[in-house]
Amino acid sequence: MALSAENQQPPVVVVMGVSGVGKTTVARLLAARLDLPYAEADDFHPAANIAKMSAGTPLDDRDRQPWLRALGGWLGERAEAGSGGVVTCSALKRDYRDVLRAACPDAFFLHLSGSHDLIGDRLAHRTGHFMPPSLLDSQYAVLEPLQADERGTVLDVDAAPDTLVERAVAALAR
């Protein structure tokens, strides 16, 4: 298991980005590579949020608060237990990341980024997910990139998932 250089504890990683960027694929591979527990943020949404998104209505900040607190709780538990973990979460706004950091100050944000055209094409071909492609514009509109004082890195999804995982491991080692 890889250890973060700062505290010699297994890392707690939030794989973030807009819908369709590949969060689940990369997060699962990263968790397996580092032998860490994995959680999918979508599993933390209350039923009302899923119904709203399925109907093509973007969530508002009020909708997201219980979801973010639940995710933060999972992260904090992993950090406290010393087990580390990898979770997916769009974490599009700094305020959202602040909620997660409040529960887990050592969280590392792995921002997967890609062009609107590339991600739009991916969403158009994705099946079995409640997030419709029509909400992509709303996600890009609220996306606030990581700031210099936020622990994390940005990876462009123009590479294969295995390559992105290797880049993520290297970033965690720094």
Rank of each mutant, 00 (worst) to 15 (best):
M1I: 06
A2L: 15
L3Y: 12
A5R: 12
N7K: 00
Q8G: 05
Q9C: 08
P10H: 00
P11K: 00
V12N: 01
V12L: 03
V12H: 02
V15T: 13
V18W: 10
S19Q: 11
G20Q: 13
G22C: 13
G22K: 12
G22V: 10
T24N: 14
L29Y: 09
L30D: 08
A31Q: 10
L34P: 05
D42E: 14
D42P: 08
D43V: 00
F44H: 12
F44N: 04
H45L: 03
P46Y: 05
A47W: 01
A48H: 11
A48W: 04
N49T: 05
N49C: 06
A51I: 03
K52W: 06
K52C: 06
M53A: 03
M53Y: 03
S54K: 10
A55P: 08
A55W: 07
T57A: 11
D60Q: 06
D63E: 07
R64N: 08
R64V: 05
R64G: 07
Q65Y: 06
P66T: 07
W67F: 06
A70C: 07
L71K: 00
L71H: 02
G73D: 10
L75T: 01
E80S: 15
A81W: 04
G82H: 02
S83R: 14
S83C: 08
V86M: 09
V86W: 05
C89P: 00
S90E: 11
S90W: 05
S90L: 08
S90I: 07
R94P: 01
Y96G: 01
R97T: 04
D98M: 06
V99K: 02
L100D: 02
A102G: 11
A102C: 02
A103G: 01
A103L: 03
C104T: 00
P105M: 09
P105K: 06
D106N: 09
A107P: 05
H111E: 08
L112M: 13
S113Y: 10
S113G: 03
S113V: 10
G114E: 13
S115F: 02
S115A: 15
H116A: 15
L118K: 12
L118Q: 14
I119C: 09
G120T: 10
R122C: 13
A124C: 03
T127L: 13
G128C: 11
F130S: 07
M131S: 08
P132A: 08
P132K: 10
L135A: 10
L135T: 06
L135F: 13
L136A: 06
Y140P: 07
A141C: 05
A141H: 14
V142S: 12
L143S: 05
L143A: 12
L143V: 05
E144C: 03
D149G: 05
G152N: 11
G152Y: 12
T153V: 15
T153K: 01
T153R: 04
V154W: 02
L155N: 07
D156H: 14
D156M: 07
V157S: 09
D158Y: 02
D158I: 09
A160W: 02
A160V: 14
A160Q: 14
D162H: 14
T163D: 15
T163N: 01
L164D: 13
V165M: 12
V165E: 14
E166D: 15
E166H: 14
E166G: 14
R167A: 15
A170D: 14
A170N: 08
L172F: 04
L172Y: 01
R174V: 11
